[in-house]
Simulated scan of single mutants.
Amino acid sequence: MTGLTKDALRYYEKIEILTDVPRDQNNYRQYSIDNLHQLQLIQGFRKLGLDLSLLTDSINLTNDEQKLETLRACQKAVHDEMDRLTRIDTILAQQISRIPK
């Protein structure tokens, strides 16, 4: 469903960025919609090369104000990476346009 390995899922639980994974009577993990959303965010951070510890901080906070501040820092990191990629894309587009067709 997520394309992640069993080892990756266990690792994310271990470092506490995948939290509150329910288990059935046989102790098998039963991933919730919230868990899937966590995994999508984790995968997005990994693809962008962003620090997963930002997610750990936001997940483990119980104070809403601190959580909001940390999530905004995560969002800023994503925006910064988007800006960097946009600059690279602009450079590539310029180089492509200089090549005769």
Rank of each mutant, 00 (worst) to 15 (best):
A73V: 05
S58P: 02
I42F: 09
M82E: 13
L55R: 03
I88G: 03
K101S: 10
S53I: 00
L85W: 12
P100Y: 03
T86M: 03
L52T: 03
K101A: 07
R84S: 10
Y12D: 06
V78T: 11
S58F: 11
Y28A: 00
R87T: 13
Q43V: 08
L55I: 15
A77T: 14
T86R: 14
P100T: 04
L68P: 01
R46G: 03
T2P: 00
A93R: 14
L52P: 03
D20T: 03
C74E: 07
E69G: 01
L18C: 06
L50N: 05
I91L: 10
G44K: 14
Y12G: 03
L9G: 08
Q25D: 12
G3Y: 04
V78F: 05
C74D: 06
T19H: 05
D89P: 00
Y11H: 15
E65M: 04
Q40N: 13
A8E: 12
P22W: 08
Q43D: 07
R46P: 02
L48H: 08
I91G: 04
D20R: 11
L48T: 09
D20A: 12
Q38Y: 06
L68I: 09
L18I: 05
T2D: 08
L54H: 14
S58T: 13
D51T: 06
E81M: 13
A73C: 07
Q66K: 14
D24A: 03
H37R: 14
D80R: 13
H37M: 09
L39H: 07
S32W: 06
T2I: 09
T56Y: 10
T70I: 05
R46M: 10
H79E: 15
Q94P: 01
S97F: 00
R87L: 09
Q30S: 04
Q66H: 13
R84G: 02
T5A: 08
T86C: 00
I88D: 12
